[in-house]
Computed example of a mutant assay.
Amino acid sequence: MGRRPHPRNAQAQRSPWPRLYGRHAVIAALSNPERVHRKLHITHSAMKQLEAEYDLPKGFNVQFGDDSDLGRLVPADAPHQGMVLEVEPLDSRYLGDFLGDDFGKRPLVVLDQVTDPHNVGAILRSAAAFGAVALVTQDRNSPTESGSLARAASGALELVPWVRVVNLARALGEIGDAGYWRIGLDGAATRNIDDALSDTRPALVFGAEGEGLRHNTAEHCDELAKLPISSKMESLNVSNAAAITLYAAARRL
């Protein structure tokens, strides 16, 4: 007979809605007019901090508890900081909304089966910091909204439009037809990212942790490029690579 799940984790898993936790993620979600909020679980001390930064509307669904009460709503050891917000997932955005000329040379970020929510959250944070137009992922083999992803994004989940597509290769075709220069990051490429970016309107394509870009995804890129890292290191974590690449793209704006 298998071990019974820890009651704290079991209760967290039974929630029908994503639960966002931590001050940055919760306040960003509360401030997002496109976000539907279900219930705010909060300690009295955290409410005093929240009221200094955000005015809850009258009638907002609030349930007070202590740290242990909130701890039972989230994964073990999750740093909730006294705030847990139940929300409805944001609607996926339409790719066509980001293929016009209104965004100048700001980059699109495309992820090819990056599944770790911490990495996707960190990439969203860098995308917001360096002015990316949107994040594009395949709706399969990519994480859904979660507390861990939102915490890693530190508010950027509410700021960067997230486009989920059925077929990534087809989406890359549409992106190329719209005038984006599709650059796939590959450590084995011969050209450095600065040279590849040049004067382009880039779509930056990052592969999965460990495996890198799939062959079909690489075939739908205009070129492959690498980061000029030391030969002593084989590669970087995908979120670190994305941050450096987005910084390089932002320097041209």
Rank of each mutant, 00 (worst) to 15 (best):
H6R: 07
P7E: 01
A10Q: 11
A12P: 11
P16C: 02
W17V: 10
P18S: 04
P18M: 01
L20H: 00
Y21C: 01
L30T: 03
E34M: 10
E34D: 15
V36S: 12
L40D: 05
L50C: 02
Y54F: 14
Y54K: 05
P57L: 03
K58V: 13
F60I: 05
F64H: 13
G65C: 02
D66V: 14
D67V: 06
L70I: 09
L70G: 03
V74S: 00
Q81E: 15
V87D: 00
P89I: 02
D91Q: 11
Y94H: 15
L95Q: 05
F98E: 06
D102E: 15
K105A: 13
L108S: 05
L108F: 08
V109C: 11
P117A: 06
S126M: 01
A127H: 01
F130V: 05
F130I: 04
A134F: 04
N141V: 08
S142I: 07
T144V: 10
T144L: 09
E145M: 14
G147V: 00
G147R: 00
S148L: 09
A152H: 05
P161R: 00
W162Q: 10
N167T: 08
A169V: 15
A169I: 10
E174Y: 02
E174D: 06
G176A: 13
G176T: 09
Y180R: 07
I183R: 04
D186A: 03
A188R: 15
R191T: 15
D195S: 14
A196C: 12
L197D: 03
S198M: 06
S198W: 08
A203M: 09
T217Y: 02
E223Y: 01
L227E: 07
I229Q: 03
I229N: 03
I229P: 09
I229A: 04
I229T: 08
A248Q: 11
L253Q: 12
